[in-house]
């Protein structure tokens, strides 16, 4: 038996095991596109992982919260495009989303701003924004949102979530086959039943095509900390293209010293693997 065949049978076995675990947990099916045989850094796309139906967590430290929210809006935009493409008959009305937060967060970081969302590729007319008093109200609203079956996704900014609450959300999301995202501060380290947890850090933006001194396309450093039925943890820099509504993975910048810099075969000289499309002024 050659090493190669052993490798494939091994990966097939892993896939089978994963599938049966997923069945037991009644969670989503395993991603076939992310076989463990591929190098981790290239094999999985965090954006694809967190568009799966189920509960996902985005965490960031306090000062990076705005970046996490920005990333979340990009995820919403990708989901909106995806959901809209699935249902061309409903093209007249974009899919609806619920964004629930506490009044506290609005006071501190402002409210989602329609014109900006539109610039980022998300059409805001059916974004239900909820300003609740407590985290409990936010969680309740998310549960209702998942149960209603009228949304394309629900997102909540919460201070703390216990294991029970996250398990409830996770089960509901799986049952109604809908993605649900939680933005949590990093400082809260409670266990959770989420499928995926991403740690978001801001990253210097891509190059602006017209003006090198100006900020270009938004980028984040995304660290996959946990993925049920998914690849092992890794870290990658991602860029949002608001025109095609796609995430791109960016090779690490040459001048960036990362302790755990992923090693790709051919890092393109100093810049993005995929150049950002025309950045607007």
């Amino acid at each position: 038996m050659s090493g190669e065949t052993r490798g494939t049978s091994r990966s097939a076995l892993m896939a089978r095991l994963r599938r049966s675990i997923a069945e037991i947990e009644q969670s989503v099916p395993v991603l076939e596109e992310a076989p463990a045989a591929l190098p981790r850094e290239e094999g999985a796309d965090p954006a694809r992982l967190i568009l799966r139906p189920g509960l996902h967590e985005l965490t960031a430290s306090y000062e990076d919260m705005s970046a996490a929210r920005g990333f979340a809006f990009a995820v919403l935009a990708a989901r909106q495009k995806h959901a809209g493409a699935l249902r061309p008959a409903r093209k007249a009305l974009p899919p609806a989303f619920l964004w629930a937060m506490r009044l506290e967060e609005r006071r501190e970081f402002g409210a989602p701003y329609g014109p900006g969302l539109l610039d980022a590729g998300f059409s805001p007319e059916r974004l239900l924004t909820l300003y609740a008093r407590t985290s409990l109200d936010v969680l309740w609203a998310l549960e209702e949102g998942l149960k209603a079956g009228a949304l394309a996704g629900a997102l909540g900014e919460v201070g703390d979530v216990g294991l029970t609450e996250s398990r409830r959300l996770s089960l509901l999301a799986a049952e109604h086959r809908m993605p649900c995202w939680l933005i949590r501060p990093l400082e809260r380290k409670e266990a959770s039943a989420a499928l995926t947890r991403l740690r978001i850090r801001p990253a210097p933006s891509g190059r602006h095509v017209h003006d090198p001194a100006a900020p270009g396309a938004a980028r984040w450093q995304v660290e996959l900390e946990k993925a049920k039925a998914g690849p092992m943890p890794f870290r990658v820099t991602m860029e949002w293209d608001h025109e095609t509504h796609c995430f791109h993975m960016v090779a690490p910048l040459a001048d960036r010293a990362l302790p755990a810099a992923p090693k790709t075969q051919s890092p393109p000289a100093g810049e993005a693997a995929i150049l950002p499309l025309a950045r607007t002024g």
Partner: peptide, 10 residues
Amino acid sequence: RPLRPLRLLT
């Protein structure tokens, strides 16, 4: 016009 932010402070 130039880009607008995603979140606007009240």
